[in-house]
């Protein structure tokens, strides 16, 4: 029998999240975001959060909900273009923002979870991103030193999960979720479908249960589409 990670709901899962903590939140745009836990944190009204997330949601969904209530002190992201309130708070100085290249963000989370304190990458060399960072040449090309990221809580969203905390993601909703799951001191996974241990094929697990401390089946997923683009048949 595997170690059981199941909690009842978002309220139990988010227990211990306090003002001033650093959180990682999976998702790309609104795709693969932990909707249940975000709603719960709006209710909890935790403040002064540092949120590490590729994007900041839109004005009325995703992390935009926490921004509207000024619960976020600092965002660490790569792209924040879809959120007017974010841009307003950033330009007025209310919100601290650390913008970092998307690949560096992913790798910094992975490194944090993998016990690699820092690494060299070519991304950002010669730009503002490189300011204050060590530069070293490898194979005749300059690279900058980037440090690992970890978080008090990592909050991820998966398609399926089992009671042991093993996770399977769907399509492009995987994005940052697996790396962030690795980098949380406590990792919360909310899943669309929670199944008994043994039901998921071990050959097709994306995130092994060791990286997950709490898991629950989410409810009422909206899964909002940001840009609905279609073609016509014929």
């Amino acid at each position: 029998m595997a170690i059981n990670k199941v909690v009842a709901n978002a309220t139990e899962a988010t227990e211990g999240i306090k003002d001033g903590m650093t959180l990682m939140l999976g998702g790309f745009g609104l795709c693969g975001i932990p909707e249940n836990c975000i709603s719960e944190m709006v209710k909890m009204n935790v403040k002064g959060l540092t949120c590490i997330s590729n994007n900041a949601g839109v004005d009325d969904f995703g992390l935009g909900l926490l921004l509207q209530k000024k619960q976020i002190k600092k965002m660490i992201s790569s792209y924040v273009g879809e959120n007017d309130e974010f841009e307003r708070q950033m330009l007025s100085g209310e919100l601290e923002v650390d913008l970092i290249p998307q690949g560096s963000l992913a790798e910094r989370c992975r490194a944090g979870g993998a016990g690699i304190p820092a690494f060299f990458t070519p991304a950002g060399y010669g730009t503002e991103v490189a300011e204050g960072k060590e530069v070293r040449d490898f194979n005749g090309k300059p690279h900058i030193l980037e440090s690992a990221l970890t978080a008090d809580f990592a909050i991820v969203k998966a398609w399926k999960g089992d009671t042991a905390g093993n996770l399977v993601f769907k399509a492009a909703a995987r994005n940052f979720n697996p790396m962030m799951a690795m980098a949380g001191k406590i990792t919360i996974a909310e899943v669309e479908e929670l199944v008994p241990e043994g039901d998921l094929d071990p050959n097709f697990i994306h995130t092994p249960g060791i990286f997950v401390q709490r898991i629950f089946q989410g409810v009422d997923y909206e899964k909002r589409i940001e840009q609905r683009t279609v073609r016509q048949k014929g």
């Binding site: 790569s78 273009g81 950033m90 330009l91 290249p101 998307q102 690949g103 991103v129």
Partner: peptide, 12 residues
Amino acid sequence: VKGMGGAMDLVA
């Protein structure tokens, strides 16, 4: 200020 997204990784 929208952010660089993946552009810096791509061009580097």
